[in-house]
């Protein structure tokens, strides 16, 4: 099968304000696309690091490399991830369309796709309650066709540093995410590789994923 390869590289970190906005593609433009046999993507994301994965301005108190989470019912209390930086890359992930098998596996469960309630119905169109399985349905197939042999880990890269994790509290007009009172370290996490300082961890995926709705 000939597969048209489309490689999209997305650099989503620190996009300048002059970047064009993403807009929907109309029907005429869609009809010009010839990659209907599949799409292959590469996604790269840098967060507070340069091209060599070195952190940029992420040391010292109240440095800008931080992310805060505020939960409902905990207003004014911020779970802060400080000294936070990293890198993520998905390399050559391929999306194609496929049809699911027509026969059930030994693990099948007809209860999985039933609606809830006293009189459940099958949520897969055209299937009875007793035979409520996605056999023969359309699905999106996700794979890493460039995945290498044993010892090759190039499908997924992740470097992450959370130097400190602590709560910060709102103080008057100053929100908690703009404070660094808890200067000590409560928890620190790091995802990396022992080959070098700040080297991203490397992973590989084998096999295929089939994604479908119901």
């Amino acid at each position: 099968m000939r597969t048209t390869r489309s490689v999209l590289i997305a650099l989503i970190f620190l996009l300048p304000c002059s970047t064009l906005a993403m807009e929907p593609v109309n029907d005429e433009q869609l009809s010009l696309i010839t990659g209907q046999q599949g799409v292959q993507l590469t996604l790269k994301l840098r967060n507070n690091v340069d091209e060599n994965f070195n952190p940029v301005g992420c040391s010292g108190a109240l440095n800008p490399c931080r992310m805060g989470l505020e939960f409902a019912g905990r207003e004014g209390i911020w779970l802060m991830l400080k000294d936070y930086y990293g890198y993520l890359a998905l390399n050559d992930i391929r999306l194609t369309s496929t049809t699911l098998p027509g026969t059930a596996t030994a693990f099948s469960n007809t209860q999985r796709f039933l609606s809830q309630g006293s009189t459940p119905t099958c949520l897969i169109s055209g299937k009875s309650v007793a035979g409520c399985l996605p056999t023969g349905e359309l699905a999106m197939k996700v794979s890493y066709p460039q995945s290498g042999p044993v010892g090759n880990y190039n499908d997924f890269s992740l470097f992450m540093n959370i130097g400190r994790t602590a709560l910060e509290f709102d103080d008057g007009a100053t929100p908690g995410f703009m404070r660094d009172v808890a200067s000590g370290s409560v928890l620190g996490f790091r995802m990396s590789d022992s080959s070098a300082l700040n080297a991203p961890s490397q992973s590989k995926f084998m096999g295929d994923a089939y994604v479908f709705g119901f």
Binding site: L100, R112, M206, G207, A209, V211
Partner: peptide
């Protein structure tokens, strides 16, 4: 739904 076949991570 997400099915995984011949899978390894």
């Amino acid at each position: 739904a997400v099915a995984l076949d011949n899978f390894a991570y």
